[in-house]
Design a protein around this nucleic acid. Structure first.
Lengths: 211, 211
DNA sequence: ACCTGAACACCGTTCAAGT
DNA sequence: ACCTGAACACCGTTCAAGT
């Protein structure tokens, strides 16, 4: 995991790993079936290190935000592995249970219908997944970050994205750096507002299958 | 692209590609700098094939849904490449402009504040990203799909996910298969409801930086 | 039961040599 | 300018042989 954190997933080589462990490269095969097992082991370690948020008496909105933030911080801590974690079929399946449970519990306290709860959890979990990918896709520290959104937009033929251009203009010069934490929170608030709206006007019950 | 679609990303090898093209493996290096260029080229092809939804007079909610669905169907068409597309730094950056523009345009027509528009677009795009990853992570056709959520839950020590268990119970036996299309749409509705809620009660203006 | 070294079958890529 | 073949430096993994 240290190798991956420092030098990326590609740097994790059976020979390198063995060297770092001070053993013969082939010895690893007596404990694990292959490299895939090494990687999925790392993925599972990182995923399972995500702590379950302590149950509190806080309002359900805060419980949900807390659960989402815990996932996010747990995975950005190993940003080189994050794409694998978030993509791993086993993790995707387990996420429906482990990380979703606190959210289900919070929604239950306000009487969200089962179907709506599933939708809300999926929306939340998928958003967290997607925002994580976006976050780890940009080079480490805003440092050496490619041309900013504003500059890239300027190089395109004018009129390509007029609405975006107007938004950037309106935001003014203070909108130079993106704060992932604040953006993440704002999106969470939006999702939660959507759930609240569903509470006030119960969902139209269409025919749908779920598992 | 055909190789990747049929046999996965790992099957795309310089030698294989050259063979399929009927040329010498090394000839490729006279047209492209290396394998990374081949892959990012494919990623860019798939991404740029996403059509811009035609501007209509439909209500903004429908315009947003249409934009999101177009992205999704464009990427599930090449599910083997989807994780790379959605992870590619260049695509992540371009997505803020290309695929976001129709959404900005739709939000503009109802006077969403610039800051809220950025948040809404991020929430939408990140959700689409995340749901795509979740969808392509499960084996192809619900066929040979691992143990269902219900069965996996049963193998865990009881009491692990009580709230989820109650939700599944309430959904009953009809909830055996998950319909990605319907789930996607339901989540979109939730996000849009969140945006609508923001329209009714304008966002608290905190201090934040954006780009 | 665990470890080892050598070898195999691949891979991306370099490079000198061809036309 | 474009292509070629051979070679290099890696990789994951197999396997017979050691203890």
């Amino acid at each position: 995991l240290r190798i991956v954190d420092n030098d990326g997933v590609d740097a994790l080589t059976m020979r390198r790993l063995a060297g770092e462990l001070g053993v013969n490269p082939m010895s690893i095969y007596h404990h694990l079936p292959g490299k895939a097992a090494v990687l999925s082991g790392l993925v599972e370690v990182v995923f399972s290190k995500i702590p379950a948020p302590a149950a509190t008496a806080a309002p359900w909105q805060q419980q949900i935000k807390r659960a989402a933030r815990v996932i996010r911080t747990g995975l950005v801590a190993h940003r080189n592995l994050a794409p694998l974690v978030v993509t791993d079929p086993g993790v995707v399946a387990d996420a429906q249970i482990t990380v979703a449970e606190p959210i289900y519990a919070a929604l239950e306290t306000v009487g969200v219908s089962p179907r709506s709860a599933v939708d809300a959890v999926n929306a939340l979990v998928d958003f967290v997944r997607g925002s994580l990918i976006a976050e780890v896709a940009v080079p480490p520290e805003g440092f050496d970050v490619g041309p900013s959104l504003r500059e890239r937009l300027r190089t395109l033929p004018p009129g390509t994205a007029p609405a975006l251009a107007r938004v950037l203009d309106a935001l003014g010069a203070d909108g130079m750096a993106y704060d992932f934490d604040a953006g993440f929170d704002a999106c969470l608030d939006l999702l939660i507002a959507g759930i609240e709206a569903g509470l006030r006007s119960p969902a139209p019950s269409e025919e749908r299958n779920r598992s």
